[in-house]
Simulated scan of single mutants.
Amino acid sequence: MPSNLIVQAPADGVRLITLHRPQALNALNTALLEELAAELHAADQDPQIRAVVITGSRKAFAAGADINEMAERDLVGILDDPRVAHWQSIAGFGKPLIAAVNGFALGGGCELVMCADIVIAGSDARFGQPEINLGILPGAGGTQRLLRAVGKPLAMQMVLGGEAIDARHALQAGLVSEVTEPELTVERALQVAVAIAAKAPLAVRLAKEALLKAQDMDLASGLRFERHAFTLLAGTADRNEGIRAFQEKRPARFQGL
């Protein structure tokens, strides 16, 4: 059983993962990242799980990397850091990943948020990449994903100045998808997850992949991928069930086939 996570199944098809290092404001040490990567890998392989919500505490989603652990690593340790593989595994999660964020999401915490597909933020949430204050820069995708999410000027201000932004600013900039009251953040994220879990799993996975391709491909290549995915789904049982359910005015019963 993971020691730095609380894992629950609050609804059919939904897994809720809570970061649980309260004494360190959920700072992301190697052990936590390893456990998180393992849990997400297991969820990716489980056909019964169709969406995952990740959250922290009311005070902090995750306040960054574990600085005490970082201080113990020399250059050789950094170059051979096992956390790199853990971050790659987390970022490569194939099913919908929803972040429910309250409090601080700084450094690695902000980078973890940017690995999610949908971000529900409490109005008290704060997002930032303050690594520059330690004489370093974001090392888990922060410089790359942040610029793509919020654009060059704000990304430069956040990374070079080490400035955090609040939830409303993050919503305006496109870093989060929705802002709610802090006490409702997890509940709202679970509502979104339940709605997604009720959709056709193959269509959801391919739709997510197609949307992510749009970040990295030119338009013509992205459109080719979209057409290919659309054609693949046209031959599925879930596509036929979806059309039948619409015609019969009843909820669809998707099986992932």
Rank of each mutant, 00 (worst) to 15 (best):
A170V: 12
A170F: 14
L171K: 13
L171Y: 15
L171C: 10
L171G: 06
L171M: 15
L171I: 05
Q172P: 00
Q172N: 14
Q172V: 14
Q172C: 10
A173M: 14
A173S: 13
G174R: 15
G174M: 15
L175M: 13
V176R: 11
V176Q: 07
V176N: 12
V176S: 15
S177F: 04
S177W: 10
S177Y: 04
S177R: 15
S177T: 08
E178D: 11
E178S: 07
E178N: 09
V179E: 10
V179M: 12
V179H: 03
V179T: 14
T180N: 02
T180C: 03
T180K: 08
T180D: 03
T180G: 01
E181M: 09
E181I: 06
E181A: 12
E181K: 03
E181D: 05
P182K: 03
P182E: 02
P182S: 10
E183V: 03
E183A: 11
E183Q: 10
L184S: 06
L184F: 08
T185W: 09
T185C: 08
T185I: 02
T185P: 01
T185E: 05
V186W: 05
V186D: 05
E187A: 08
E187S: 05
E187W: 03
E187R: 10
E187F: 07
R188A: 07
R188K: 06
R188N: 06
A189T: 01
L190V: 10
L190W: 06
L190M: 12
Q191E: 14
V192L: 05
V192M: 09
V192C: 04
V192S: 01
A193F: 03
A193E: 07
A193W: 04
V194S: 12
V194E: 13
V194D: 07
A195L: 09
A195E: 12
A195D: 12
A195Y: 00
I196Q: 06
I196S: 06
I196T: 01
A197F: 04
A197W: 05
A198N: 08
A198Q: 11
A198K: 15
A198D: 08
A198I: 00
A198F: 00
K199N: 09
A200Y: 02
A200D: 15
A200P: 09
P201G: 01
P201W: 02
L202F: 00
L202N: 03
L202C: 07
A203D: 10
A203S: 05
V204P: 00
V204Y: 04
R205A: 12
R205N: 06
L206T: 03
A207M: 10
A207S: 10
K208R: 13
K208F: 01
K208S: 04
K208L: 10
E209L: 13
E209N: 04
E209V: 00
A210S: 08
A210W: 10
A210F: 03
L211R: 13
L211Y: 01
L211A: 15
L211G: 08
